[in-house]
């Protein structure tokens, strides 16, 4: 396969996984992190008050799925770039 073919496949992979991560984050059921908070409430009778608050998602909670997508996209881009680099510089090649 030529270089352009790899770039096309890589781009499709990056966008595909980023979209998948965005979809999952948008449609996720209650996360275990939230259930752990509920468990802390149950154990302390709701008496525990967090002493710090998360600063929130930049631009509002609706941006969280997109930022998960960005995270996934960045990761898969690095992964694809490294695998492509190794393919080109294969040992003994």
């Amino acid at each position: 396969m030529n270089k352009r073919g790899y770039i096309v496949i890589g781009t499709v992979l990056i966008l595909g996984l980023a979209t998948f991560a965005t979809f999952l984050a948008d449609h996720a059921a209650t996360g275990t992190d939230d259930r752990a908070v509920e468990q802390i409430d149950a154990l302390t009778g709701g008496a525990y008050e967090p002493w710090a608050q998360a600063q929130g998602v930049p631009g509002g909670e609706r941006n969280a799925p997109i930022l998960f997508g960005v995270q996934a996209g960045a990761g898969i881009a690095v992964l694809a770039a490294c695998l492509w680099y190794w393919r080109e510089h294969r040992s003994g090649a």
Partner: peptide, 27 residues
């Protein structure tokens, strides 16, 4: 260096996926 990048990329990609599981919660 690429191997280090791949190790980091695995963490970046996999920890971004909120997957549903058998308990009805996602993780």
């Amino acid at each position: 260096l690429p191997l280090l990048a791949v190790s980091g990329a695995f963490i970046f990609v996999l920890s971004s996926l909120k997957l549903p599981s058998v308990t009805g919660s996602s993780s």
